[in-house]
Design a protein around this nucleic acid. Structure first.
Length: 293
DNA sequence: GCGTCCAGGTCTACC
DNA sequence: GGTAGACCTGGACGC
């Protein structure tokens, strides 16, 4: 399967856009020149795919050879990959903004600004919940446990990210013990049960006409999703008008703009205010600039 | 090896 | 609306 990306797409920059490549089922190489993950087509059908860029095309190869794919299923996989890699995102206005400031000109030059997201919004929300109030090492542990213990094993031995139904049947005690997610267990359980009982439809969040403010409010109504997590999930939904400030943003901002002095969230907000609806993306690009060096 | 302390966001109760 | 304390884990550190 192949996808024809726009001229300003760069797979490396997208994989390297934030830490998602490091969380299963995502896998990448040391050079970050390919991405692997599991795409779930139905409750039973999970495809382990490898995504690579070659000859100005994006190639998608199913790695579990025994799986048979219909034409419709291949189209579905291509659409999911397009969504994950943000291929259809219009960044022209963003790049024009970056070109106006010397320190941001590297962004359009490197074709950066497309932030990797998971095949589903559910996966993104759970992973974001797992980044709160803990080290990256613990985020990885929780995601690995959840995937390995509740995901479905593919024919080549990989595990899919679990569906909400699989998590919803477990108890809070089980999640605390087996997933090591501690006090997050009741939040995760409530989210999954609300999805199963159709009280919330997180998958509709990627294609909705509602304002960023409304979407932010919906995200904040999910227990365990606070200001930081909601702001960052919005970025994965293509909305960049919230910063999603955490301790790392504060630290990097302070190093870049205040000679390491302590800085308040209000002054970070004021600094990026001039970038309007792109401020969240400019902030993320600025503090991760050295990753792209 | 064991105990203690700290860092990391979010929620809730309280003022 | 603002603030303090609890939540839980891994890692660093001292003994």
């Amino acid at each position: 399967m192949t996808i024809n990306p726009p001229f300003n797409f760069d797979l490396y920059s997208t994989i390297n856009s934030h830490g998602w490549f490091d969380l299963p089922p995502f896998q990448t190489t040391e050079q970050k020149d390919e991405l692997q993950t599991i795409i779930s087509l139905s409750k039973q059908k999970h495809v382990h795919v490898r995504i690579r860029e070659a000859n100005a095309l994006i190639g998608i190869v199913p790695l579990n050879k025994t799986v048979r794919l219909s034409k419709t299923e291949k189209e579905k996989i291509k659409n999911i990959v397009r969504s994950m890699l943000r291929i259809d995102e219009q960044l022209d206005e963003f790049y024009l903004l970056c070109k106006k400031e010397k320190h941001l000109r590297w962004i359009p030059k490197r074709h950066a600004g497309r932030i990797l997201r998971s095949p589903t919004t559910f996966e993104d929300i759970v992973k974001m919940m797992f980044t709160t109030n803990c080290s990256w090492a613990l985020t990885k542990i929780m995601t690995e446990h959840l995937t390995r213990k509740l995901g479905t094993k593919t024919s080549d031995g990989k595990f899919s990210f679990p569906r909400p139904e699989a998590i919803a049947t477990k108890s809070e005690k089980w999640l605390r013990k087996e997933i090591s997610c501690g006090y997050r267990a009741p939040y995760l359980l409530k989210l999954c049960r609300d999805i199963v009982n159709k009280k919330i439809d997180v998958e509709s969040f990627r294609n909705t006409d509602c304002s960023s403010e409304d979407l932010y409010r919906k995200l904040r109504s999910i227990k365990g999703i606070g200001h930081y997590a909601a702001g960052n999930i919005l970025k994965l939904l293509g909305r960049y008008d919230y910063l999603g400030i955490d301790s790392w943003v504060r630290k990097r901002f302070s190093q870049l703009h205040k000679n390491g002095r302590k800085v308040s969230d209000t002054s970070i907000e004021e600094h990026y205010h001039r970038y309007g609806s792109w401020r969240g993306l400019i902030c993320l690009m600025e503090i991760t600039a050295d990753w792209h060096a």
